[in-house]
């Protein structure tokens, strides 16, 4: 992946596929975000995990120190991006028990992902999805597209719209440690009275999705919403496709992946259209 010598300022554009999808999913995502924050804090406080590194969008981080203090947690928060840069705000937050707190750049990162983290840090990279996808067992590679089958780690897809519960570059997109953490987190959410949201969150990892980057702009497409945001500027387009086995309520029909193909025949496949093309070509 050769990079170009420019960077796009931070931005985030969100386009929902329909009013119905917006009305259905936006409140769920809001609840899910809060549940992910709450359960991460309570999980560390109660010893489910020694430490966690999560990314929180927007102002949600403001309430964190107070909540963490009440739970006996140490919280270290770093705003992403360059100082003084305008645009959407995200915070990488390392959460540890106060008495076992071990400050360090790699706290909350599984050992298997530390090398990827260092590589990305060293190269001042914004995203690592392509490299993580390249390293994923069983991936299919075709020029500028990598296709993966099976459920993925949430942070790879949803990190600009939802709390990223695993805010570190993944060794690969089926990282066993991160998948184990995901399973643990789902169990903990259910134990903490968030069973419904846990089921939705688990299901979302099996929706089809596509990450694609070009000219420093990423477009992330899911069946209900698409996002555009800044990423590393590269000399050619890159695309990672996650084949899905689940499908969300109000997922859209559309012409390209990851949307569901309409069942009826396309106008451009109709006999009348083809007759016209043939006839006019021969006139």
């Amino acid at each position: 992946m050769n990079r170009l010598e420019f960077s796009i300022p931070p931005f985030l554009s969100v386009a929902w596929v329909s009013e119905e999808a917006l009305k259905h999913w936006q409140p769920i995502f809001k609840q899910l975000n809060q549940a992910l924050i709450d359960t991460t804090l309570s999980g560390v406080a109660q010893g489910v995990w020694n430490s966690r590194r999560i990314r929180i969008p927007g102002a949600a981080v403001m309430k964190l120190p107070e909540t963490a203090k009440a739970l006996g947690l140490a919280v270290r928060s770093t705003q992403t991006g360059l100082p003084g840069e305008k645009g959407p705000v995200f915070h990488d937050v390392v959460i540890q028990l106060r008495h076992t707190s071990q400050p360090g750049d790699t706290a909350g990162i599984p050992d298997c992902c530390v090398a990827r983290h260092n590589e990305m840090q060293g190269n001042a990279r914004q995203e690592s999805i392509w490299e993580s996808a390249e390293a994923t067992p069983g991936r299919k590679f075709d020029t500028d597209t990598i296709t993966l089958h099976g459920g993925y780690v949430h942070g790879a897809v949803w990190h600009k719209l939802l709390v990223n519960p695993f805010s570190y570059p993944l060794c690969h997109l089926y990282c066993p440690t991160t998948l184990r953490l995901t399973t643990e987190h789902l169990e903990w959410m259910r134990a903490e009275s968030h069973a419904g949201l846990a089921d939705i969150w688990a299901d979302m990892a099996h929706w089809p999705a596509e990450w694609n980057a070009s000219h420093g702009i990423c477009e992330m497409r899911t069946p209900v919403v698409k996002l555009a945001y800044e990423t590393d500027a590269t000399d050619r387009p890159f695309r990672v496709r996650f084949d899905g086995t689940a499908w969300p309520t109000h997922g859209a029909f559309g012409l390209d992946f990851p949307y569901r193909s309409p069942e009826r025949k396309r106008m451009t496949d109709s006999q009348s259209f083809k007759n016209g093309v043939d006839l006019l070509r021969n006139l």
């Binding site: 969100v14 386009a15 929902w16 596929v17 009013e19 917006l22 698409k226 859209a252 029909f253 012409l255």
Partner: peptide, 11 residues
């Protein structure tokens, strides 16, 4: 290009 009438983004 997708055939989907996306809702306008807010920003």
């Amino acid at each position: 290009k997708e055939g989907i009438n996306f809702i306008k983004a807010r920003r």
